[in-house]
Amino acid sequence: MNQTTAVPVRSLDTQPKRPPAKWKKHLWGYLFLIPAIGIFFTFLWLPIGKGIVYSFYHIDFVKGDTYVGWDNYARVLKDPNVLVSVKNTLYYMGLGLVIGFWVPILFAIAISEMRRFQGFARIAAYLPYVVPVVVLYGLWRWLYDPVGPINAVLTKIGFDSVLFLTDKAWSMISIVIMETWQSFGSALLIYIAAISSIPRDWYEAAEIDGAGIWKRIRYITLPAIKNQIVLLFLLQLIATSQNFQTHYAVLDGGPNNATLTYALLVIRYAFTRQDYGSASALGVLMFLVLSVLAILQYRMSSGKEEA
């Protein structure tokens, strides 16, 4: 007896379903992005665009705006305070790298090498970051006072008292020390997370081979967190180039413009002189410089990811 097996035959009329288009597949994702994109455009790119336009105008809220072309740029470039502010900003950025940049790295490595009380050390190092800035400024003004605790200790061990806030040689250094104490906790958490992701087998193998703590740090820890170091290096350059809050609140650019940064000069043009066109011109120049740093940061980070 012959046994036949029925083979289903697909109808010629049925066509395979086409996969949905990409925009249909991610439609709900795009819809959820619309509010964020609208806020981003309204509060970031729209002000940037208006700032570029205003840099070519003399802004007058009563008589109306007047087109002046490149006059605002010519005016600010002739201002001697612009050169002073650029020098002070570069000096401030350099001090931030020399004094403050390595602090979170050293603390993160030290905490990661601790066998006990790691949680307490992390919390203690991060606490200054959550201190309100008003309290911070009052605290450090008291510490830097000519008869404050720091000068009391200096005079007790035989040194002369230091005028931290009124001496041009010390004013910028004092601000950098204060900001380092307050803000290194945020970078510290990033470095600790990076160190925690390093396989423990590497350290165990190094210890078996007889490597001490310094060799483990040099040949394992630092190369493993190199990407984070480069990223935070560029981010710190951008952040310090824009900073003005501390310089304005503590010394208002003094003494004798020793702490007058570029961003603080923009604030003076806008809200003290009420010359919004020149302030916009200064902002555009800063925007161009920071754009170059941002592009550099993006290329370096993308190159590291590809590698």
Rank of each mutant, 00 (worst) to 15 (best):
K17H: 12
S55R: 03
N88M: 05
T4G: 11
G49A: 14
P149K: 09
G210A: 10
I48D: 08
G254K: 08
E305M: 11
G49Q: 07
T221P: 00
V98D: 09
L143T: 02
Y57D: 07
L293K: 06
I173M: 08
F120Y: 13
R10D: 14
V131C: 12
L235E: 00
K215Q: 13
W70P: 02
Q297S: 08
V147E: 13
L33P: 04
G283T: 03
L251P: 01
R122N: 05
L234G: 02
E207N: 12
A124H: 07
D71I: 00
Y73S: 00
R273F: 15
V134N: 11
V292N: 09
F287N: 04
P8T: 12
I217E: 00
A205I: 13
T261H: 05
Q15P: 02
V53G: 09
A121I: 06
G158R: 01
F32C: 03
A121C: 07
A74V: 08
T66V: 15
S278L: 01
S186N: 10
F233H: 04
V289A: 15
L282N: 03
S171F: 04
Q228G: 01
A249T: 15
V131Q: 11
F117C: 00
G49W: 13
A270R: 03
P146A: 04
G96Y: 06
L31Q: 06
A281K: 03
L77F: 15
A205H: 11
P146S: 01
P132F: 10
Q236M: 15
R216K: 15
I175S: 00
G119A: 10
Y191H: 09
G148I: 09
Q182V: 07
K22R: 15
L235K: 04
Y298G: 04
L282V: 00
K78G: 15
G96E: 02
G94K: 01
K226G: 10
Q15R: 15
E204A: 11
I59W: 00
N88A: 04
V250P: 03
H26K: 08
Y298Q: 13
Q297W: 04
W202L: 15
P146N: 04
F244R: 02
D13V: 15
M286I: 11
P16C: 08
